[in-house]
Design a protein around this nucleic acid. Structure first.
Length: 364
DNA sequence: AAACACCACAACCGCGACTGC
DNA sequence: GGCAGTCGCGGTTGTGGTGTT
């Protein structure tokens, strides 16, 4: 090996950018069956043209079944601010205190929302305070801080009271803002049968740290953001391929109400996986070189089969329910408006989802 | 309606830590 | 102890979506 750090993979031979639904399913199916003991080996064994790092990231931040998606609750934001005050930019540490939230997600919400809100409110508080103090006495010095003290504002604010004040104002603003969207910081008690047309699941997460008594269910929006959030946490190890779902890597305070349909879903995944493994086998064994047209017809049939089973599993993909399991970037990936996305595109032979294309990449 | 600016977030990159040989 | 391989973390970037002019 030459000098310098070796790249984690050959960047010219791996796909980059947003993940397609096809890739997601491959990864899910593989991890479901084999787990992820060696991330570097995962893409190769799963038939993905991705580097292991990318697979790991995709799994942890997006596909993992216990990932909670959607807007952060007020309790969560409070927790993040407090924890950031304690730990700084230790996102993984903060994430470990927020069940279902990933470090990346927390980092994003901090950088895009909380930090800015704190800066603004801190500046306002600071201005107000110096105004007040100057009205009392012009000779007394006041502790203030400028926005230039970023990054890591929460740590650099010297006056903890001011920080707390800004925090309170921030939270009040958040509550006001959220109330417009009918979100409350009180316990939400939506009781709805997940077997109904809706796709609600009920992963109740006790909001920790600040409001440990509150039970905060995922909002409808949260539930609908990922195609997989309806799944409860499950055990993906090799001894558990009979679809006996067990909780794994689950925070102690995560209370799951399981879905009966999980089993069916994994049957679907298993079917998909059969298709996938046949592809890998074809690729790996030169003696098994079925003529392309035969492969294509078989795979076409299988492709149609699993997409139709996908339909059956989740109900017909129509205008009313398609967004319920379509991550927003899926439509973007296909270059269409998510609101007009036609699921039938998944079956079009020229689409990226066409397994023949995947097969061709593998053979190349 | 088009152009532009800004925002949000998924994904990438590079580095340090860890582990096994 | 040194090295190589791998993992995990934190910072940064790219890009689609949304709001504004």
């Amino acid at each position: 090996m030459g000098k310098g750090r070796a790249p984690c993979c050959d960047k010219t031979k791996v796909k980059r950018g947003p993940w397609s639904p096809e890739e997601d399913l491959k990864l899910i199916a593989f991890i479901h069956k084999n787990g992820h003991e060696n991330w570097r080996a995962v893409p190769k064994q799963a038939g993905l043209l991705r580097c292991g790092k990318s697979c790991r990231l995709r799994w942890i931040n997006y596909l993992r079944p216990d990932v909670k998606r959607g807007n952060f609750t007020i309790e969560e934001e409070q927790s993040i601010i407090k924890l950031h005050n304690d730990f700084g930019n230790k996102w993984s540490k903060i994430a470990s205190c927020l069940p279902g939230r990933t470090d990346n997600e927390i980092k994003n919400v901090w950088n895009t929302h909380l930090k800015k809100r704190l800066i603004v409110k801190s500046s306002e508080s600071s201005a107000d305070e110096s105004k007040m103090e100057s009205s009392i006495t012009s000779s007394s010095s006041s502790e203030s801080f400028s926005t230039n003290e970023e990054p890591n504002l929460a740590k650099t604010i010297p006056n903890s009271e001011l920080n707390e004040q800004a925090f309170q104002v921030t939270m009040n603003e958040k509550i006001e803002h959220d109330s417009e969207k009918h979100v409350s910081n009180e316990v939400i008690s939506i009781i709805e049968d997940p077997k109904d047309s809706s796709t609600y699941s009920f992963s109740f997460v006790e909001s920790n740290i600040l409001n440990s008594n509150h039970i905060v269910p995922f909002t409808q929006e949260q539930q609908l953001c990922s195609p997989l959030t309806y799944l409860g946490p499950y055990n993906i190890d090799n001894n558990n391929i009979n679809n006996t779902l067990q909780e794994v890597d689950k925070p102690n305070n995560l209370i799951e109400i399981p879905w009966d349909s999980d089993e069916d879903f994994w049957k679907l995944i298993d079917n998909f996986e059969s298709l996938q493994s046949s592809e890998v086998q074809l690729e790996g064994d030169p003696s098994n070189q079925t003529p392309n047209h035969v492969q294509e017809s078989v795979q076409d049939g299988e492709n149609m089969k699993w997409t139709h089973e996908f339909d059956n599993e989740f109900g017909e993909r129509n205008e009313s329910n398609k967004d319920q399991f379509l991550p927003k970037n899926y439509a973007a990936e296909l270059g269409v408006d998510p609101h007009t996305f036609d699921f039938d595109v998944m079956e079009k032979p020229e689409s990226e989802l066409d397994l023949r294309n995947i097969q061709l990449w593998l053979m190349a």
